[in-house]
Computed example of a mutant assay.
Amino acid sequence: MEKEEGQEAHPHVVICTIPAQGHVKPMLKLAELLSHSSFRVTFINTEYVNATFLSSFDIQSFSRRFPKFRFVSIPDGLPPDSPRSGKGIIDVLFSLRDTAKAALLEVLVSLRQPPTCIIADGIMSCAAIDAGEEFGVPVLAFRTYSACCTWTYFHLSMLLQEGEVPLQDKDMDQLVTCISGLENVLRRRDLPSICRIERADDPLYTFFATQALAMRRASALILNTFEELEAAILFKLGSIFSKIYTIGPLHALSNVRIKDDNSSTLASAKSIQT
């Protein structure tokens, strides 16, 4: 692959997000912070989200502020007229599960500068980690929410085994005791919304459990939290990951590190409906 002059001086990070507002926004914040710190950034969205995104803000102004930042899109594998908001996001996730690895590899091969690493949303773990391993670059998993929620996702299979889910006809104020570290904290009603399933073999529940299992293969875990807030659960996650980076809250870090007004990019991210 041809390299541009001086590329070696700047690490190149490929960022893979999923097409949901609550994931694109923190991923974009992280990408901006890395770009502001002189990293080269390739930000991968689906074609549908990328078109919506880029039509919503001044790309020329953004490029002047972040000259080493590049937006790239991949197909989500669905027909153009398929709904992608509301419950349609489920079809998008299932389609990306089957198509994203090949699309990501195609992007990686096309890059002028090989990536130093990939930072992938944890919900894209299967495709991103498989692609990274095949391409020979490390993959870091980024969960855009708390350590507590991330730890709970690692116990989705156990919740099934212990009969905590499905939640139908159960006392929702009953404590969930099968998740180490949360025995006296977590009630059934506090479990993620995907636990409100009707049957144990729910495909979406299985999807998230599978992605969490694959995420264990990541080289490191990045979380949008901070040590003082969730030290006990971060210690638990240390049994899975040898490297954990707590970088939150990202919006506050961005306000401190990036002085320029970036309301245009935030407005663009807000335009993504799921």
Rank of each mutant, 00 (worst) to 15 (best):
K3A: 14
H10N: 14
V72C: 05
E230L: 01
A147I: 01
V109R: 15
Q7H: 12
C149P: 03
A31E: 01
V256M: 04
K29N: 15
P11A: 12
L186C: 14
Y245L: 10
S38D: 12
R84T: 03
L229M: 14
F226Y: 15
G77H: 04
E5H: 06
S146Q: 13
F53V: 06
C195Q: 04
I233S: 00
A212N: 11
S95Y: 09
E4R: 12
V13I: 15
T144V: 08
S157C: 06
H12K: 05
L237P: 02
P67V: 01
I18T: 15
A269L: 02
I15F: 07
L191Q: 13
A9G: 06
C117V: 00
L140K: 05
A252Y: 00
V107L: 01
P67C: 13
E32I: 09
Q21C: 08
A141C: 15
S242P: 02
L186E: 03
K87W: 11
V41T: 10
L182W: 03
S73R: 14
F39H: 06
H155C: 03
L175Q: 04
S146A: 09
V256A: 13
D190P: 12
I197E: 13
F71I: 14
P80H: 06
F226D: 14
L54T: 13
Q174E: 12
I118D: 01
S239G: 03
S35R: 05
E2R: 13
A267N: 11
F135W: 05
L182V: 13
D81R: 10
T274A: 08
Y205K: 02
L78S: 08
S271Q: 06
K259A: 14
N224T: 08
I197G: 06
S125V: 14
R199Y: 11
R143E: 02
F62S: 14
A100W: 09
P83C: 08
I123Y: 09
P192F: 05
I15M: 14
R64Y: 13
K259E: 14
G86W: 00
Y145W: 08
I240D: 00
Q174W: 05
C126D: 14
S85H: 09
V107G: 00
L30E: 00
C117E: 04
F235W: 04
F241M: 09
K25Y: 10
K243W: 11
T206Y: 07
V24F: 09
N224V: 13
M215Q: 07
R84D: 10
I194L: 15
G248P: 07
D260S: 11
E4Y: 12
E32S: 07
H155Y: 08
T116R: 02
L33D: 01
F57C: 07
Y153R: 00
D260L: 07
A141N: 10
V139Q: 01
D91Q: 15
T274D: 13
G136P: 00
P166R: 03
H155L: 05
S219H: 10
I59E: 11
S242C: 11
S242F: 06
S110N: 05
L111P: 02
E162T: 15
S157Y: 10
